[in-house]
Design a binder for these strands. Structure first.
Lengths: 230, 230
DNA sequence: TTAATAGTGTCTATGAGACAGTATGCC
DNA sequence: GGCATACTGTCTCATAGACACTATTAA
Protein backbone atom coordinates (compact mmCIF):
# COMPACT_ATOMS: atom_id res chain seq x y z
CA UNK A 1 0.00 0.00 0.00
CA UNK A 2 1.51 3.28 -1.11
CA UNK A 3 1.70 6.61 0.64
CA UNK A 4 -1.30 8.63 1.69
CA UNK A 5 -2.90 10.61 -1.11
CA UNK A 6 -5.81 13.02 -1.33
CA UNK A 7 -9.26 11.49 -1.87
CA UNK A 8 -10.23 11.20 -5.49
CA UNK A 9 -13.88 10.22 -5.39
CA UNK A 10 -17.19 10.64 -3.63
CA UNK A 11 -18.83 7.68 -1.92
CA UNK A 12 -22.50 6.96 -2.43
CA UNK A 13 -24.91 4.22 -1.54
CA UNK A 14 -27.72 3.18 -3.86
CA UNK A 15 -30.55 0.85 -2.94
CA UNK A 16 -32.31 -1.84 -4.91
CA UNK A 17 -35.48 -2.23 -2.84
CA UNK A 18 -37.71 -5.04 -4.05
CA UNK A 19 -41.19 -6.04 -2.99
CA UNK A 20 -44.01 -8.20 -4.28
CA UNK A 21 -47.36 -6.49 -4.77
CA UNK A 22 -50.32 -7.25 -6.96
CA UNK A 23 -48.70 -10.48 -8.11
CA UNK A 24 -45.75 -8.61 -9.62
CA UNK A 25 -42.21 -7.80 -8.59
CA UNK A 26 -41.82 -4.09 -7.85
CA UNK A 27 -38.79 -1.86 -7.49
CA UNK A 28 -38.65 1.29 -5.40
CA UNK A 29 -37.64 4.15 -7.67
CA UNK A 30 -37.42 7.90 -7.36
CA UNK A 31 -38.04 10.53 -9.93
CA UNK A 32 -35.06 12.86 -9.77
CA UNK A 33 -35.93 16.50 -9.02
CA UNK A 34 -32.43 17.84 -9.60
CA UNK A 35 -29.71 17.65 -12.20
CA UNK A 36 -28.17 15.54 -13.54
CA UNK A 37 -30.84 13.28 -15.02
CA UNK A 38 -33.58 15.60 -13.71
CA UNK A 39 -36.95 13.96 -14.27
CA UNK A 40 -35.45 10.54 -14.89
CA UNK A 41 -36.04 7.50 -12.75
CA UNK A 42 -33.25 6.42 -10.42
CA UNK A 43 -32.55 4.30 -7.41
CA UNK A 44 -32.92 5.84 -3.97
CA UNK A 45 -29.54 6.66 -2.51
CA UNK A 46 -27.08 9.41 -1.82
CA UNK A 47 -23.71 10.36 -0.50
CA UNK A 48 -22.23 8.78 2.57
CA UNK A 49 -21.53 11.21 5.39
CA UNK A 50 -18.36 11.55 7.37
CA UNK A 51 -17.95 8.80 9.96
CA UNK A 52 -21.14 7.14 8.72
CA UNK A 53 -21.13 3.41 8.15
CA UNK A 54 -22.55 2.15 4.87
CA UNK A 55 -25.60 0.25 6.18
CA UNK A 56 -26.51 3.31 8.25
CA UNK A 57 -26.22 5.52 5.20
CA UNK A 58 -28.41 3.12 3.24
CA UNK A 59 -31.13 3.15 5.90
CA UNK A 60 -30.93 6.93 6.28
CA UNK A 61 -31.32 7.56 2.58
CA UNK A 62 -34.21 5.16 2.43
CA UNK A 63 -36.00 6.98 5.23
CA UNK A 64 -35.26 10.43 3.82
CA UNK A 65 -36.44 9.67 0.34
CA UNK A 66 -39.37 7.37 0.95
CA UNK A 67 -40.64 8.00 4.49
CA UNK A 68 -41.70 4.39 4.66
CA UNK A 69 -42.26 3.44 8.29
CA UNK A 70 -40.36 0.38 9.39
CA UNK A 71 -37.04 -0.69 8.00
CA UNK A 72 -36.92 -3.38 5.34
CA UNK A 73 -36.56 -6.84 6.76
CA UNK A 74 -33.46 -7.62 4.80
CA UNK A 75 -30.55 -5.41 3.80
CA UNK A 76 -27.37 -6.77 2.28
CA UNK A 77 -24.48 -5.35 0.35
CA UNK A 78 -24.83 -6.08 -3.34
CA UNK A 79 -21.78 -4.78 -5.23
CA UNK A 80 -19.70 -1.68 -5.74
CA UNK A 81 -19.88 0.28 -8.97
CA UNK A 82 -16.91 2.50 -9.61
CA UNK A 83 -16.35 2.82 -13.33
CA UNK A 84 -14.87 6.23 -14.15
CA UNK A 85 -17.49 8.28 -15.96
CA UNK A 86 -20.53 6.66 -14.45
CA UNK A 87 -21.52 10.04 -12.97
CA UNK A 88 -21.23 13.17 -15.14
CA UNK A 89 -20.47 15.35 -12.10
CA UNK A 90 -17.19 13.59 -11.34
CA UNK A 91 -15.98 10.35 -9.96
CA UNK A 92 -18.50 8.61 -7.70
CA UNK A 93 -18.02 5.18 -6.21
CA UNK A 94 -21.38 3.69 -5.39
CA UNK A 95 -21.86 0.80 -3.00
CA UNK A 96 -25.17 -0.79 -3.88
CA UNK A 97 -27.39 -2.48 -1.30
CA UNK A 98 -30.18 -4.95 -1.88
CA UNK A 99 -33.25 -4.65 0.34
CA UNK A 100 -36.22 -6.98 0.40
CA UNK A 101 -39.47 -5.89 1.98
CA UNK A 102 -43.05 -7.11 2.34
CA UNK A 103 -45.83 -5.24 0.60
CA UNK A 104 -45.35 -1.79 2.14
CA UNK A 105 -47.64 1.20 1.67
CA UNK A 106 -46.94 3.57 -1.18
CA UNK A 107 -44.10 5.84 -0.10
CA UNK A 108 -44.99 9.40 0.74
CA UNK A 109 -41.50 10.73 0.27
CA UNK A 110 -41.81 13.80 -1.89
CA UNK A 111 -38.95 16.13 -1.18
CA UNK A 112 -37.78 18.80 -3.55
CA UNK A 113 -35.05 16.42 -4.64
CA UNK A 114 -37.07 13.36 -5.45
CA UNK A 115 -40.47 11.68 -5.53
CA UNK A 116 -40.57 7.98 -4.65
CA UNK A 117 -42.90 5.22 -5.78
CA UNK A 118 -43.12 1.52 -6.63
CA UNK A 119 -42.60 0.46 -10.21
CA UNK A 120 -43.17 -3.01 -11.67
CA UNK A 121 -39.84 -4.31 -12.86
CA UNK A 122 -41.52 -5.48 -16.05
CA UNK A 123 -41.85 -1.79 -16.98
CA UNK A 124 -38.13 -1.25 -16.45
CA UNK A 125 -36.52 -4.17 -18.19
CA UNK A 126 -38.69 -4.22 -21.29
CA UNK A 127 -38.18 -2.05 -24.33
CA UNK A 128 -41.17 0.07 -23.36
CA UNK A 129 -39.75 0.94 -19.98
CA UNK A 130 -38.42 4.32 -18.93
CA UNK A 131 -34.65 4.29 -18.80
CA UNK A 132 -32.91 4.63 -15.45
CA UNK A 133 -30.36 7.32 -14.62
CA UNK A 134 -26.62 6.66 -14.37
CA UNK A 135 -25.74 2.95 -14.53
CA UNK A 136 -28.71 2.08 -12.34
CA UNK A 137 -30.13 -0.32 -14.89
CA UNK A 138 -27.06 -2.51 -14.35
CA UNK A 139 -27.43 -2.29 -10.60
CA UNK A 140 -31.08 -3.29 -10.80
CA UNK A 141 -30.25 -6.21 -13.03
CA UNK A 142 -27.61 -7.44 -10.58
CA UNK A 143 -29.93 -6.94 -7.62
CA UNK A 144 -32.78 -8.87 -9.18
CA UNK A 145 -30.44 -11.66 -10.18
CA UNK A 146 -29.10 -11.80 -6.62
CA UNK A 147 -32.63 -11.98 -5.24
CA UNK A 148 -33.59 -14.69 -7.71
CA UNK A 149 -30.69 -16.92 -6.87
CA UNK A 150 -30.99 -16.34 -3.14
CA UNK A 151 -34.55 -17.65 -3.21
CA UNK A 152 -33.10 -20.95 -4.32
CA UNK A 153 -30.90 -21.69 -1.36
CA UNK A 154 -32.09 -19.38 1.44
CA UNK A 155 -35.35 -18.69 3.23
CA UNK A 156 -35.32 -15.07 2.06
CA UNK A 157 -38.64 -15.45 0.26
CA UNK A 158 -40.35 -15.08 3.62
CA UNK A 159 -39.06 -11.50 3.91
CA UNK A 160 -41.37 -10.63 1.03
CA UNK A 161 -44.30 -11.94 3.04
CA UNK A 162 -46.24 -10.24 5.84
CA UNK A 163 -45.80 -11.40 9.42
CA UNK A 164 -48.31 -14.23 8.93
CA UNK A 165 -48.70 -15.84 5.56
CA UNK A 166 -50.02 -18.92 3.82
CA UNK A 167 -48.00 -21.44 1.85
CA UNK A 168 -49.76 -20.24 -1.26
CA UNK A 169 -48.62 -16.67 -0.62
CA UNK A 170 -45.08 -17.91 -0.20
CA UNK A 171 -45.32 -19.81 -3.44
CA UNK A 172 -46.63 -16.69 -5.21
CA UNK A 173 -43.44 -14.92 -4.12
CA UNK A 174 -41.35 -17.56 -5.84
CA UNK A 175 -43.52 -17.50 -8.94
CA UNK A 176 -43.45 -13.73 -9.21
CA UNK A 177 -39.72 -13.32 -8.58
CA UNK A 178 -38.75 -16.18 -10.85
CA UNK A 179 -41.45 -15.55 -13.43
CA UNK A 180 -42.27 -19.25 -13.49
CA UNK A 181 -45.03 -21.57 -12.36
CA UNK A 182 -44.38 -23.96 -9.50
CA UNK A 183 -46.35 -27.10 -8.73
CA UNK A 184 -48.40 -26.23 -5.65
CA UNK A 185 -48.29 -29.77 -4.29
CA UNK A 186 -44.57 -30.31 -4.62
CA UNK A 187 -43.92 -26.83 -3.26
CA UNK A 188 -46.07 -27.52 -0.23
CA UNK A 189 -44.25 -30.75 0.46
CA UNK A 190 -40.84 -29.12 0.02
CA UNK A 191 -41.53 -26.16 2.31
CA UNK A 192 -43.13 -28.17 5.08
CA UNK A 193 -40.42 -30.83 5.02
CA UNK A 194 -37.64 -28.24 5.37
CA UNK A 195 -37.00 -27.88 9.09
CA UNK A 196 -37.30 -24.27 10.27
CA UNK A 197 -38.43 -22.72 7.00
CA UNK A 198 -41.92 -21.86 8.25
CA UNK A 199 -43.61 -22.31 11.63
CA UNK A 200 -47.34 -23.03 11.89
CA UNK A 201 -49.22 -20.51 14.01
CA UNK A 202 -52.31 -22.65 14.44
CA UNK A 203 -54.38 -19.84 12.98
CA UNK A 204 -56.56 -20.15 9.92
CA UNK A 205 -57.31 -17.50 7.34
CA UNK A 206 -60.99 -17.45 6.45
CA UNK A 207 -63.20 -15.07 4.56
CA UNK A 208 -61.94 -15.75 1.07
CA UNK A 209 -63.23 -18.21 -1.48
CA UNK A 210 -62.23 -21.80 -1.12
CA UNK A 211 -60.97 -23.83 1.77
CA UNK A 212 -59.38 -21.70 4.52
CA UNK A 213 -55.57 -21.79 4.64
CA UNK A 214 -53.28 -22.34 7.59
CA UNK A 215 -51.12 -19.38 8.57
CA UNK A 216 -47.37 -19.60 9.16
CA UNK A 217 -44.55 -17.37 10.39
CA UNK A 218 -40.90 -17.26 9.43
CA UNK A 219 -38.82 -20.01 10.98
CA UNK A 220 -35.29 -19.77 12.28
CA UNK A 221 -33.60 -21.48 9.33
CA UNK A 222 -31.74 -19.22 6.93
CA UNK A 223 -30.46 -21.74 4.38
CA UNK A 224 -32.35 -24.25 2.29
CA UNK A 225 -30.71 -27.57 1.70
CA UNK A 226 -31.40 -29.10 -0.69
CA UNK A 227 -32.27 -25.90 -2.55
CA UNK A 228 -35.45 -25.24 -4.50
CA UNK A 229 -34.85 -25.60 -8.22
CA UNK A 230 -35.69 -22.56 -10.32
CA UNK B 1 -29.37 11.98 -4.15
CA UNK B 2 -28.32 15.18 -2.48
CA UNK B 3 -26.09 17.97 -3.71
CA UNK B 4 -22.47 17.55 -4.63
CA UNK B 5 -20.12 17.49 -1.65
CA UNK B 6 -16.35 17.20 -1.25
CA UNK B 7 -14.90 13.67 -1.15
CA UNK B 8 -14.61 12.27 2.34
CA UNK B 9 -12.62 9.10 1.86
CA UNK B 10 -9.84 7.41 -0.02
CA UNK B 11 -10.55 4.42 -2.22
CA UNK B 12 -8.39 1.35 -2.04
CA UNK B 13 -8.46 -2.14 -3.46
CA UNK B 14 -7.25 -5.15 -1.50
CA UNK B 15 -6.73 -8.62 -2.90
CA UNK B 16 -7.41 -12.02 -1.47
CA UNK B 17 -5.24 -14.16 -3.74
CA UNK B 18 -5.60 -17.87 -3.09
CA UNK B 19 -3.69 -20.81 -4.47
CA UNK B 20 -3.20 -24.48 -3.69
CA UNK B 21 0.38 -25.61 -3.15
CA UNK B 22 1.91 -28.49 -1.26
CA UNK B 23 -1.57 -29.86 -0.52
CA UNK B 24 -2.55 -26.74 1.42
CA UNK B 25 -4.50 -23.59 0.72
CA UNK B 26 -2.20 -20.57 0.58
CA UNK B 27 -2.85 -16.85 0.72
CA UNK B 28 -0.68 -14.19 -0.88
CA UNK B 29 0.40 -11.78 1.85
CA UNK B 30 2.82 -8.91 2.10
CA UNK B 31 4.92 -7.83 5.00
CA UNK B 32 4.38 -4.11 5.37
CA UNK B 33 7.52 -2.01 5.13
CA UNK B 34 5.87 1.28 6.10
CA UNK B 35 3.58 2.59 8.81
CA UNK B 36 0.93 1.97 9.88
CA UNK B 37 1.23 -1.71 10.82
CA UNK B 38 4.89 -1.72 9.74
CA UNK B 39 6.21 -5.28 9.88
CA UNK B 40 2.74 -6.79 10.07
CA UNK B 41 1.22 -9.06 7.47
CA UNK B 42 -1.40 -7.57 5.17
CA UNK B 43 -3.20 -8.17 1.91
CA UNK B 44 -1.67 -6.82 -1.29
CA UNK B 45 -3.49 -3.70 -2.39
CA UNK B 46 -3.35 0.05 -2.54
CA UNK B 47 -5.09 3.23 -3.51
CA UNK B 48 -7.05 3.56 -6.70
CA UNK B 49 -5.74 6.18 -9.07
CA UNK B 50 -7.69 8.89 -10.79
CA UNK B 51 -9.72 7.58 -13.71
CA UNK B 52 -8.59 4.04 -12.95
CA UNK B 53 -11.18 1.28 -12.94
CA UNK B 54 -11.20 -1.07 -9.96
CA UNK B 55 -10.19 -4.31 -11.72
CA UNK B 56 -7.32 -2.43 -13.36
CA UNK B 57 -6.21 -1.11 -9.99
CA UNK B 58 -6.36 -4.60 -8.55
CA UNK B 59 -4.21 -6.05 -11.33
CA UNK B 60 -1.76 -3.15 -11.14
CA UNK B 61 -1.25 -3.50 -7.40
CA UNK B 62 -0.80 -7.23 -7.77
CA UNK B 63 1.92 -6.73 -10.37
CA UNK B 64 3.65 -3.97 -8.43
CA UNK B 65 3.79 -5.82 -5.17
CA UNK B 66 4.39 -9.37 -6.28
CA UNK B 67 5.95 -9.28 -9.76
CA UNK B 68 4.27 -12.57 -10.49
CA UNK B 69 4.30 -13.12 -14.25
CA UNK B 70 0.87 -13.81 -15.70
CA UNK B 71 -2.36 -12.54 -14.31
CA UNK B 72 -4.45 -14.77 -12.06
CA UNK B 73 -7.00 -16.77 -13.98
CA UNK B 74 -9.92 -15.51 -11.97
CA UNK B 75 -10.58 -12.09 -10.49
CA UNK B 76 -13.93 -11.12 -9.02
CA UNK B 77 -15.18 -8.42 -6.72
CA UNK B 78 -15.66 -9.72 -3.21
CA UNK B 79 -17.09 -7.00 -0.96
CA UNK B 80 -16.52 -3.44 0.11
CA UNK B 81 -15.24 -2.63 3.58
CA UNK B 82 -15.92 0.89 4.73
CA UNK B 83 -16.35 0.93 8.48
CA UNK B 84 -15.13 4.26 9.87
CA UNK B 85 -11.94 3.70 11.81
CA UNK B 86 -10.75 0.67 9.90
CA UNK B 87 -7.64 2.63 8.88
CA UNK B 88 -5.83 4.77 11.50
CA UNK B 89 -4.72 7.30 8.87
CA UNK B 90 -8.24 8.37 8.04
CA UNK B 91 -11.27 7.07 6.27
CA UNK B 92 -10.48 4.47 3.64
CA UNK B 93 -13.08 2.54 1.68
CA UNK B 94 -11.61 -0.69 0.47
CA UNK B 95 -13.09 -2.73 -2.35
CA UNK B 96 -11.82 -6.26 -1.91
CA UNK B 97 -11.20 -8.59 -4.84
CA UNK B 98 -10.90 -12.35 -4.80
CA UNK B 99 -8.32 -13.90 -7.11
CA UNK B 100 -7.75 -17.60 -7.68
CA UNK B 101 -4.53 -18.79 -9.25
CA UNK B 102 -2.72 -22.07 -10.00
CA UNK B 103 0.46 -22.89 -8.15
CA UNK B 104 2.58 -19.89 -9.13
CA UNK B 105 6.24 -19.36 -8.36
CA UNK B 106 7.18 -17.62 -5.15
CA UNK B 107 6.73 -13.90 -5.73
CA UNK B 108 9.88 -11.83 -6.10
CA UNK B 109 8.19 -8.58 -5.21
CA UNK B 110 10.41 -6.91 -2.65
CA UNK B 111 9.97 -3.19 -2.84
CA UNK B 112 10.79 -0.81 -0.06
CA UNK B 113 7.12 -0.80 0.84
CA UNK B 114 6.42 -4.50 1.07
CA UNK B 115 7.75 -8.03 0.71
CA UNK B 116 5.35 -10.60 -0.73
CA UNK B 117 5.08 -14.35 -0.15
CA UNK B 118 2.66 -17.28 0.11
CA UNK B 119 1.37 -18.21 3.53
CA UNK B 120 -0.70 -21.30 4.43
CA UNK B 121 -4.09 -20.12 5.60
CA UNK B 122 -3.85 -22.57 8.49
CA UNK B 123 -1.15 -20.28 9.94
CA UNK B 124 -3.45 -17.27 9.70
CA UNK B 125 -6.73 -18.53 11.08
CA UNK B 126 -5.37 -20.50 13.99
CA UNK B 127 -4.44 -19.07 17.37
CA UNK B 128 -0.75 -19.46 16.54
CA UNK B 129 -0.99 -17.36 13.41
CA UNK B 130 0.42 -13.89 12.96
CA UNK B 131 -2.36 -11.30 13.02
CA UNK B 132 -3.18 -9.37 9.88
CA UNK B 133 -3.15 -5.58 9.61
CA UNK B 134 -6.31 -3.47 9.47
CA UNK B 135 -9.50 -5.55 9.14
CA UNK B 136 -7.80 -7.86 6.66
CA UNK B 137 -8.56 -10.93 8.73
CA UNK B 138 -12.25 -10.32 8.07
CA UNK B 139 -11.61 -9.86 4.37
CA UNK B 140 -9.64 -13.09 4.21
CA UNK B 141 -12.38 -14.95 6.04
CA UNK B 142 -14.99 -13.66 3.59
CA UNK B 143 -12.78 -14.46 0.61
CA UNK B 144 -12.13 -18.01 1.69
CA UNK B 145 -15.80 -18.56 2.38
CA UNK B 146 -16.65 -17.22 -1.08
CA UNK B 147 -14.11 -19.55 -2.67
CA UNK B 148 -15.42 -22.51 -0.69
CA UNK B 149 -19.01 -21.99 -1.68
CA UNK B 150 -18.16 -21.23 -5.31
CA UNK B 151 -16.47 -24.60 -5.64
CA UNK B 152 -19.85 -26.13 -4.96
CA UNK B 153 -21.77 -24.70 -7.87
CA UNK B 154 -19.15 -23.46 -10.34
CA UNK B 155 -16.19 -24.94 -12.20
CA UNK B 156 -13.80 -22.50 -10.50
CA UNK B 157 -11.77 -25.31 -8.96
CA UNK B 158 -10.06 -25.72 -12.32
CA UNK B 159 -8.54 -22.24 -11.99
CA UNK B 160 -6.43 -23.61 -9.13
CA UNK B 161 -5.07 -26.26 -11.49
CA UNK B 162 -2.33 -25.94 -14.12
CA UNK B 163 -3.20 -25.95 -17.81
CA UNK B 164 -3.34 -29.76 -17.89
CA UNK B 165 -4.37 -31.66 -14.81
CA UNK B 166 -5.64 -35.02 -13.63
CA UNK B 167 -8.95 -35.76 -11.96
CA UNK B 168 -7.04 -36.56 -8.79
CA UNK B 169 -5.39 -33.13 -8.82
CA UNK B 170 -8.79 -31.53 -9.24
CA UNK B 171 -10.12 -33.55 -6.33
CA UNK B 172 -7.16 -32.46 -4.20
CA UNK B 173 -8.19 -28.85 -4.82
CA UNK B 174 -11.62 -29.57 -3.40
CA UNK B 175 -10.21 -31.48 -0.47
CA UNK B 176 -7.69 -28.77 0.38
CA UNK B 177 -10.08 -25.84 0.03
CA UNK B 178 -12.88 -27.56 1.90
CA UNK B 179 -10.67 -29.33 4.38
CA UNK B 180 -12.61 -32.54 3.85
CA UNK B 181 -12.14 -35.91 2.21
CA UNK B 182 -14.05 -36.75 -0.94
CA UNK B 183 -14.71 -40.22 -2.29
CA UNK B 184 -12.44 -40.54 -5.30
CA UNK B 185 -14.83 -42.80 -7.19
CA UNK B 186 -17.94 -40.69 -6.75
CA UNK B 187 -15.93 -37.55 -7.52
CA UNK B 188 -14.65 -39.08 -10.73
CA UNK B 189 -18.13 -40.02 -11.80
CA UNK B 190 -19.53 -36.60 -10.93
CA UNK B 191 -16.86 -34.62 -12.78
CA UNK B 192 -16.89 -36.75 -15.90
CA UNK B 193 -20.68 -36.79 -16.09
CA UNK B 194 -20.92 -32.99 -15.90
CA UNK B 195 -20.89 -31.74 -19.46
CA UNK B 196 -18.13 -29.19 -20.10
CA UNK B 197 -16.45 -29.35 -16.70
CA UNK B 198 -13.26 -30.93 -18.00
CA UNK B 199 -12.12 -31.91 -21.50
CA UNK B 200 -9.87 -34.93 -22.07
CA UNK B 201 -6.65 -34.11 -23.89
CA UNK B 202 -5.82 -37.68 -24.81
CA UNK B 203 -2.50 -37.31 -23.06
CA UNK B 204 -1.32 -39.49 -20.22
CA UNK B 205 0.89 -38.51 -17.32
CA UNK B 206 3.55 -41.13 -16.62
CA UNK B 207 6.69 -41.29 -14.54
CA UNK B 208 5.05 -41.34 -11.13
CA UNK B 209 4.13 -44.34 -9.04
CA UNK B 210 0.95 -46.17 -9.87
CA UNK B 211 -1.15 -46.33 -12.96
CA UNK B 212 -0.68 -43.32 -15.27
CA UNK B 213 -3.48 -40.76 -15.20
CA UNK B 214 -5.36 -39.14 -18.03
CA UNK B 215 -4.84 -35.41 -18.45
CA UNK B 216 -7.67 -32.91 -18.85
CA UNK B 217 -8.14 -29.22 -19.56
CA UNK B 218 -10.77 -26.77 -18.40
CA UNK B 219 -14.08 -27.09 -20.21
CA UNK B 220 -16.40 -24.31 -21.28
CA UNK B 221 -18.98 -24.81 -18.53
CA UNK B 222 -18.95 -22.28 -15.70
CA UNK B 223 -21.75 -23.59 -13.51
CA UNK B 224 -22.24 -26.99 -11.93
CA UNK B 225 -25.74 -28.32 -11.76
CA UNK B 226 -26.42 -30.22 -9.66
CA UNK B 227 -23.71 -28.82 -7.37
CA UNK B 228 -21.08 -30.83 -5.56
CA UNK B 229 -22.00 -31.23 -1.90
CA UNK B 230 -19.46 -29.95 0.58
C1' DT C 1 5.87 -59.65 -7.10
C1' DT C 2 4.51 -55.85 -4.62
C1' DA C 3 3.14 -51.28 -3.85
C1' DA C 4 0.77 -47.44 -5.45
C1' DT C 5 -2.36 -44.93 -7.93
C1' DA C 6 -6.17 -44.75 -11.75
C1' DG C 7 -10.34 -46.01 -13.17
C1' DT C 8 -15.09 -48.87 -13.50
C1' DG C 9 -19.28 -51.09 -11.56
C1' DT C 10 -23.17 -51.92 -8.30
C1' DC C 11 -26.47 -51.18 -4.76
C1' DT C 12 -29.52 -48.28 -2.01
C1' DA C 13 -31.77 -44.48 -0.05
C1' DT C 14 -33.41 -39.97 -0.98
C1' DG C 15 -35.67 -36.50 -3.19
C1' DA C 16 -37.55 -33.99 -7.31
C1' DG C 17 -41.05 -33.93 -10.62
C1' DA C 18 -45.38 -35.49 -12.56
C1' DC C 19 -49.99 -36.38 -11.47
C1' DA C 20 -54.97 -37.54 -8.98
C1' DG C 21 -57.79 -37.33 -5.44
C1' DT C 22 -59.88 -35.53 -0.94
C1' DA C 23 -61.12 -31.67 2.39
C1' DT C 24 -63.43 -27.47 3.60
C1' DG C 25 -64.92 -23.22 3.18
C1' DC C 26 -68.38 -19.51 0.55
C1' DC C 27 -72.11 -18.62 -2.64
C1' DG D 1 -75.11 -28.48 -4.81
C1' DG D 2 -71.45 -26.11 -7.15
C1' DC D 3 -67.30 -23.70 -7.14
C1' DA D 4 -62.91 -22.38 -5.56
C1' DT D 5 -59.01 -23.04 -3.03
C1' DA D 6 -56.20 -25.93 0.45
C1' DC D 7 -54.11 -29.99 1.37
C1' DT D 8 -52.60 -35.20 1.07
C1' DG D 9 -50.93 -39.27 -1.36
C1' DT D 10 -48.56 -42.12 -5.04
C1' DC D 11 -45.49 -43.32 -8.64
C1' DT D 12 -41.17 -42.94 -11.20
C1' DC D 13 -36.77 -41.48 -12.47
C1' DA D 14 -32.31 -39.40 -11.40
C1' DT D 15 -28.57 -39.15 -8.53
C1' DA D 16 -25.77 -38.81 -4.26
C1' DG D 17 -23.40 -41.67 -1.23
C1' DA D 18 -21.47 -45.98 0.25
C1' DC D 19 -18.60 -49.62 -1.11
C1' DA D 20 -15.49 -53.52 -4.06
C1' DC D 21 -13.13 -54.67 -7.73
C1' DT D 22 -10.00 -54.34 -11.92
C1' DA D 23 -6.15 -51.91 -14.59
C1' DT D 24 -1.56 -50.18 -15.29
C1' DT D 25 2.58 -48.51 -14.15
C1' DA D 26 7.41 -48.22 -11.22
C1' DA D 27 10.50 -50.31 -8.16
Amino acid sequence: MSDWEPPIANIAVDLVVLTVRQDALHLLVIERGIEPYRGALALPGGFVQEDEDLPDAARRELMEETRIPGAPLHLEQLRTYAEPGRDPRGRVISVAYLALAPNLPTPTGDTDAARAFWMPVSRLTGATGRPLAFDHANIVRDGIERARSKLEYTTLATTFCPERFTITELRRVYEVVWGARLDARNFQRKVLSTEGFVVPTGEIRRGEAGRPARLYTRGLATNLFPPIAR
